[in-house]
Amino acid sequence: MRTILIVLFTLAGFSVAQAHAFLDHASPRVGSTGPAPGQVELWMTEDLEPAFTRVKVFDAQNQEVDNKDARISGSTMIVSLPKLAPGTYLVKWSAVATDTHHTTGTFKFTVQ
């Protein structure tokens, strides 16, 4: 009994609340229509681990169109874009917060 108690109360320390990094807002805005942006910037709700966080932009043919130069700093991720032709683009992100949880998401924007 004593052994079980010691094991349980030792492991109890691991229960620090964990959250997830979600998209707070983005530029261009989620679902927006406008002129071709020079970059896509995402603001997340938690600080990110650069080694495990990715953001990519795809065109309607599912071809990656960004410059593959994603930069992760604090809770933001930025990837630059070449001059985009009119059309709808898909942003795919995959984030690991500094509290280790993994989240993914997508959103679209349209270039006029």
């Binding site: 691991f14 964990q18 959250a19 917060a97 280790t100």
Partner: peptide, 15 residues
């Protein structure tokens, strides 16, 4: 050892 656990959770990742 115990106090450092606070850096592994939501508290240290929040903005």
């Amino acid at each position: 050892l115990l106090g450092m656990l606070a850096w592994s959770g939501h508290a240290a990742a929040g903005t």
